[in-house]
Design a binder for these strands. Structure first.
Lengths: 141, 141
DNA sequence: TATTGTTATACTCTATAACTATA
DNA sequence: TATAGTTATAGAGTATAACAATA
C-alpha cells in the first residue's frame, strides 16, 4: 500500500500549467486571468461586485480595478439598480461576449495540447469528478 | 450538451482551498508551503538545488532562502559532493522527517474535513486520475 | 564556455484598513 | 448601524539579471 499523497501535490503541476494557459490566453486580449474570470461569470448572469468577489474568492477592492479595465475596453457595463443605489450590476456587452469566446477557444486549444497524451475517457472522467467536487464546495460556501 | 468548461475553473476553488490548508499546516511549524514541498521531495531522495527548482517549477534564487531557512531549523543539510564542488546535495535530517510527517498529518486531516461530503469512491478515483495526469506531465518535462 | 549557487533589485500581486454614499 | 463600492498604503511574493566559483 503506497503512502497517501497530498492532494495538492498531485494537482499542482497541472493547475500551474493551466494557470499559465489562462494567463496567456487572456493576455492576448489585454486581460488578466481574473478579468477573464469576471467576464465568464457575468456572461452567465449579471452580478454585483460583492457577489463576484465572493464567488471568485477574491477581494472586492481588487475587483474595482479589474472592472474599471473591463469597462474601459467596453466589455462590461456598470449599471446602478434603482432598488439599491449603492451597488453596481455588472453586465456583459456583445463585445465582451466575443472576447470571452475568443479567449476560451485559445484556452481549450492549449488544454488539448497540454493533455494530448491523456486518453479522452480518463480526461472526461477527471473533468467530471473535478466539476462535481468544486460545485459541491461552492454550494457549501 | 452543456458547454465545455475550462478545466481550471472546475479545479480553482478546490486548489485554492488546498493551498490554504498547506499554508496553514506548514506555518504551524514555521514553514511556507514551498519549504514543506522541498522537505517532501528531499525525503524521497536527496537532490541538488537546480533539480529541486526544476521539479517544483520554482526559481533557483528563491530556493536559496528557503533552504537557508530549512537548514537554520536543522531540517535539512547542504552537502558538497566531491564530484562537483559547485553543487549542494540537500539531505533531510531526522528532525526534518518528523516535521514533515507532522505537517502532513495536519494536511490530511484538513483534506478529510474539506472533502467530508465527497463519497470516498469519488475521491479516490479523482486522486488517482489526478496523480496519473500530473505524473505524465512531470515525465514530459 | 557553461553551469551551480548566490546576491541585488525592481516589480507585481495581495491584504488591510479607512473612507463615501447610500440603506 | 450596516453594507456596496472605492481609495491608499504597506507588505509579501516573484521575476530578471548579474556575479563568483567551479566544471
Amino acid at each position: 500500500m503506497p503512502r497517501r499523497r497530498d492532494l495538492l501535490s498531485v494537482l499542482f503541476a497541472l493547475t500551474r500549467a493551466l494557470r499559465r494557459i489562462e494567463d496567456e490566453a487572456a493576455a492576448a486580449d489585454q486581460l488578466t486571468m481574473w478579468q477573464y474570470a469576471v467576464l465568464a461569470l457575468v456572461e452567465d448572469a449579471p452580478a454585483n461586485q460583492t457577489a463576484l468577489a465572493t464567488r471568485l474568492d477574491y477581494s472586492k477592492n481588487r475587483l474595482v480595478h479589474d472592472i474599471d479595465h473591463l469597462e474601459h475596453l467596453g466589455l462590461v457595463r456598470r449599471e446602478v439598480p434603482p432598488t439599491d443605489r449603492r451597488s453596481n450590476t455588472i453586465t456583459i456587452t456583445s463585445r465582451g461576449r466575443q472576447t470571452r469566446a475568443r479567449i476560451q477557444r485559445r484556452i481549450h486549444d492549449a488544454e488539448d495540447e497540454l493533455l494530448r497524451d491523456v486518453p479522452p475517457s480518463t480526461r472526461n472522467q477527471f473533468a467530471q469528478l473535478a466539476a462535481d467536487i468544486t460545485d459541491g464546495l461552492h454550494r457549501r460556501a
